[in-house]
Amino acid sequence: MERNKSKPIVAAILFVFLLAMSFSIHPAGKPSETKMDDFFIAHGQEETGSNNIVAAIVFDYRGMDTLVEASVLFAAATGVFIALGGGKK
């Protein structure tokens, strides 16, 4: 009984905290630190030849992130395969 009453209070504290965070960062639409992204937009097309700057970042500038991401997906598929007994018989 005690536990059930405390959960809305915990959620309310978390929401107030997140609300304060969301008003204390920069106003939406006007980011403050944009040096890296401006460099990618200005030079990404010449350096990688890709029109899509997001693809240039995903597969070139930040390739290690994508490698680990693909490994996570591989591990998830392997885990589902193992957990549900797909490999037996």
Binding site: Q45, E46, T48, G49, S50, N51, A55, A56, D60
Partner: peptide, 14 residues
């Protein structure tokens, strides 16, 4: 650099 109609044979390894 700049907008273009998009050519398929670009971007190297991507």
């Amino acid at each position: 650099f700049g907008p273009n109609p998009g050519w398929l044979g670009t971007a190297g390894l991507i």
